[in-house]
């Protein structure tokens, strides 16, 4: 399984295809510490103003911060707004 993934990754690099499409990985975009956009997620596990836990394909994303709000919640993306202090990627 892991070897297949490695092959896929090298093939994607060779063909210059974005890897998040090929590998089905989440794309996380941060705008300073104000906004954090998570695409290709698998749902939300916990939400409090100081912690957002987002379920990913593999593992979980912890977002610590202050006054966090979920700006835009859709099947493809989650927009976390507020003051982001720490992002923890946990597999």
């Amino acid at each position: 399984m892991l070897r297949r993934k490695g092959k896929l990754q090298s093939l994607a690099g060779f063909l210059e295809i974005p890897q998040d499409i090929v590998m089905d990985l989440p794309r996380i975009t941060m705008l300073g510490n104000k906004q954090l956009l998570v695409e290709n997620h698998k749902g939300i596990i916990e939400y409090t103003p100081s912690l957002v836990r987002i379920k990913l394909n593999q593992g979980e994303l912890f977002i610590y911060g202050e006054k966090l709000t979920l700006g835009n919640l859709q099947a493809e993306q989650i927009l976390v707004e507020g003051v982001v202090q720490k992002v923890n990627y946990d597999i």
């Binding site: 596990i45 939400y47 979920l70």
Partner: peptide
């Protein structure tokens, strides 16, 4: 309340401006 949000995501229901007050969303 997070479960409700996940169900909404699955059903493709758009939610925005989510904040938490006390234990309620």
């Amino acid at each position: 309340p997070e479960r409700f949000i996940n169900l909404c995501i699955i059903e493709q229901i758009l939610l925005w401006g989510i904040t938490k007050i006390d234990e309620d969303l």
